[in-house]
């Protein structure tokens, strides 16, 4: 075990991949000389040089597309996009090229590309740096969407993502970068399953990314009140691991889904709909979603906090579902 942070775990994952596979390289805005806008790649350019830690101009569309081309050309690119908001400038290449290429080519051209990007609010960065659009990407067939919420996943998800012959998007929540803790030396995780992070019997609390911590905090608070919540870390937002969710529902018969995206058309909507379709009669109470308020994320701290799911609102939703 060693003490580390989410940021350092991500960096170590990249360092490890760059050492293990000469085809791996990192490309994005300020990933090199600057050290990464969130300092994830700090020091890597000095170690691996400017070819493999490649700074790009502010051309999201072209450098994400170039990542796709490089993947087709035999490399294993990691493309960093500064935030999910900025990724909209590259949405065409991700949705129209990366996600379609294998299918449109009749299976001839896989795109082994990993795209990393920051997501989420909570840092008073206002409406163009704070959104949670993971659900949009999770809508698209042809890409795998990951949301590492723990140090272990921050360290472990990149390598299997790079082994995936198809495009993978890794969402790093901005509020997690400074989270610290102990991490085992050898980390091996999968990129296809949801994980029970806290076992419980009374209610299933589903969360991912930046809100997993709040869900776990809410569960601890509820435990003191006699509510034993099972907390599931979704981890893989596409394709969804229905089996793990259904198994938990069959145990607890109650579901609360926490999602930093907006409720309308959200990933939470998809998860709840799937459970309802597949196991309607398992529910002892209607499922509840705790999502962000339907507003562009505001700058002022008190308003931003009010817009986001909080421990108190999650706990309140659980009490409602549990009828207490």
């Amino acid at each position: 075990m060693s003490h580390t942070s989410y940021r350092e775990a991500l960096r170590e994952a990249m360092r490890d991949a760059l050492r293990r596979d000469p085809r791996v390289f990192l490309m994005g805005e300020d990933v090199g000389r600057y050290g990464g806008s969130y300092a994830v790649s700090k020091g890597l350019q000095a170690e691996f040089g400017p070819e493999r830690i490649r700074d790009t101009p502010l051309s999201e569309l072209a450098f994400v597309g170039a990542g796709i081309g490089a993947a087709l050309g035999g490399l294993r690119p990691i493309v960093e996009v500064m935030t999910v908001n900025f990724s909209l400038l590259a949405l065409d290449q991700i949705v129209n090229t990366a996600a379609t290429w294998r299918h449109m080519s009749g299976g001839q051209c896989s795109v082994p590309l990993v795209i990393r990007m920051t997501t989420g609010a909570g840092r008073q960065l206002a409406a163009q740096h704070s959104h949670s659009l993971e659900g949009w990407y999770a809508h698209i067939p042809g890409i795998r969407v990951l949301a590492p919420a723990t140090l272990e996943d921050a360290r472990g998800m990149l390598w299997p993502a790079l082994q995936d012959p198809d495009p993978v998007i890794l969402f790093e929540h901005g509020q997690l970068y400074n989270v610290e803790g102990e991490l085992a030396e050898d980390v091996a995780v999968d990129i296809h399953s949801a994980r029970v992070r806290r076992s419980g019997n009374d209610v299933t609390l589903i969360a991912y990314g930046g809100l997993l911590g709040k869900a776990l905090d809410a569960a601890e608070q509820l435990a003191k009140e006699g509510i034993d919540a099972e907390v599931i870390d979704l981890r893989v937002l596409r394709p969804l691991d229905d089996a793990t969710l259904l198994a938990s529902l069959q145990k607890t018969h109650r579901v609360v889904m926490v999602d930093e995206g907006w409720k309308s058309g959200s990933l939470a909507a998809e998860v709840v709909a799937r459970l309802t379709e597949q196991a309607f009669y398992e529910f002892d109470a209607p499922p509840v979603r705790v999502c962000s308020a339907e507003v562009p994320i505001p700058y002022a701290r008190h308003l931003e906090e009010a817009a986001l799911p909080q421990v108190a609102t999650i706990a309140a939703a659980v009490r409602t579902v549990c009828g207490t």
Binding site: F25, E51, R52, L61, A62, F63, V64, G65, A66, G67, I68, G69, A70, A71, L72, G73, G74, L75, P77, D92, Q93, N96, T97, W101, M104, S105, C109
Partner: peptide, 24 residues
């Protein structure tokens, strides 16, 4: 490599394919 119906969609791809050649 296609057959691309997004106008200008192939240019970034070409840049990446050439980048892969350069790096290899």
């Amino acid at each position: 490599f296609g057959g691309n119906a997004i106008v200008a969609g192939g240019l970034p791809l070409a840049v990446g394919l050439a980048l892969a050649d350069r790096m290899q």
